[in-house]
Every structure is written in structure tokens, then in C-alpha cells.
Computed example of a mutant assay.
Amino acid sequence: MKLKNYLETIAGVSVYPIVSLLLFVAFFTIVTLWVMRTDKDTIKHIEKLPLDN
């Protein structure tokens, strides 16, 4: 049997792709908003962290 046949027999399996898409969109939106709202001084500090040593 193929994996598709196993997944078709599980009740409610169609919910998982929807939930994972919503989680991805929520995470992407939160990260995008955080990046857009962060002030430039913080960004400059973060971008120089690898060179501090």
C-alpha cells in the first residue's frame, strides 16, 4: 500500500495541511512585522555581532 492510501483511512487528516499553512503564515507575518518595526540601531548592532570577536 502507498502512503496516500494509509492517509486516506485516517479520520480528520485533512486538517493537518490547513493547520500547518496557518502556522506558517502566522510565523511569517510575525517575523515580517518584527523586522519592519525594529529600529535601525538594533539592526546595526545585530549585523555587527559576528565581527565583534
Results as ranks from 00 to 15, higher is better:
residue 1 M to N: 11
residue 2 K to A: 06
residue 3 L to Y: 05
residue 6 Y to L: 13
residue 6 Y to Q: 09
residue 7 L to S: 00
residue 9 T to G: 04
residue 9 T to S: 10
residue 9 T to V: 13
residue 10 I to P: 00
residue 12 G to R: 00
residue 12 G to Y: 01
residue 13 V to D: 00
residue 13 V to H: 01
residue 13 V to W: 02
residue 14 S to A: 09
residue 15 V to E: 05
residue 15 V to S: 03
residue 16 Y to P: 04
residue 16 Y to H: 11
residue 17 P to H: 04
residue 18 I to C: 01
residue 19 V to T: 13
residue 19 V to G: 06
residue 21 L to C: 00
residue 22 L to P: 03
residue 23 L to S: 04
residue 24 F to K: 07
residue 24 F to A: 12
residue 25 V to G: 02
residue 26 A to Y: 05
residue 27 F to N: 04
residue 27 F to C: 12
residue 30 I to K: 01
residue 31 V to I: 15
residue 31 V to T: 09
residue 34 W to T: 10
residue 34 W to M: 14
residue 34 W to P: 05
residue 34 W to V: 15
residue 35 V to I: 12
residue 35 V to N: 05
residue 36 M to Q: 03
residue 36 M to G: 01
residue 36 M to E: 02
residue 37 R to M: 10
residue 37 R to A: 06
residue 37 R to P: 00
residue 39 D to M: 02
residue 39 D to I: 10
residue 39 D to E: 03
residue 40 K to P: 07
residue 40 K to A: 09
residue 41 D to G: 06
residue 42 T to Y: 14
residue 43 I to K: 12
residue 44 K to F: 07
residue 45 H to R: 09
residue 45 H to E: 07
residue 48 K to P: 07
residue 50 P to N: 01
residue 50 P to R: 03
residue 51 L to S: 05
residue 52 D to F: 14
residue 52 D to K: 15
residue 52 D to T: 12
residue 53 N to W: 15
residue 53 N to L: 15
